[in-house]
Amino acid sequence: MELANRLWRSSLGKKYLMALSGCALFLFVVGHMIGNLQVFLGPEALNRYAHFLQSTPEILWPARLGLLALVTLHVVTAIRLWAENRAARPVAYSTYTPIEASYASRTMVVSGVIVAAFIVFHLLHFTLQKPVGLNLSGQDFAQLHDAHQRHDVFRMVVVGFQQAPVSIFYIAAVGLLCLHLRHGLQAWFQSLGLRNEAWRRPIDTLAWVAAAVVFLGNSSIPVGILLGFGKDMVK
């Protein structure tokens, strides 16, 4: 507890909290992406995977609660840091000239807020599947079942992403998420002190590549479906 207190009270400590929670969330994003990419293996694979998760509450709920705690920690710490940073310069310069700072690094708060809003939408859209009108398809996702009486997640995903506005929003949000991740990963190495002059460029490159992979992986699903993937399988 004393350690937590020390971390929370210090500027560097809060950066550790951001880095550690951010890292865990990044790993979740990667795992989630790998699971979802099973959509390209067809309905059987994806529905079996989803059924496995749904029917194992002893894994599902701790994971959900853990994620919630991580997100809360990440957001609350971010708000606190943001407030401190705002307070540190009460009078602004006549013009703000971003020096060196990348677009991604300057917009962490904005990208973070939009990503948070997206997460809420995403949860309503695919997890709670309520309100029904949200998915624009006119179908109630909760009522979709496959031949084994499992929830037909494959159909839900395909139908969901066949709605162009929804897909575009997903792609944009994932893009922002990856912008956020790109800087977040660099900062992760920096905040935990795992970077020096020799490793600086490789790490920056790694952050780029990781963010790009996450973007391509995640956006391939709505893009693929918009381009016609799964059309014949859900008729």
Binding site: S11, L12, K14, K15, Y16, L81, E84, N85, P98, I99, E100, A101, S102, S105, R106, M108, H183, Q186, A187, F189, Q190, S191, L192, G193, L194, R195, N196, E197, R200
Partner: peptide, 25 residues
């Protein structure tokens, strides 16, 4: 707080490296 923007390093007249922040962390 440091948000790893890199502006400090860019304007530093003695070109002190951002990597020292990592070392301190």
């Amino acid at each position: 707080n440091c948000t790893v923007l890199g502006s400090c390093e860019a304007v530093c007249p003695k070109e002190v490296s951002l990597s020292f922040i990592a070392r301190m962390n």
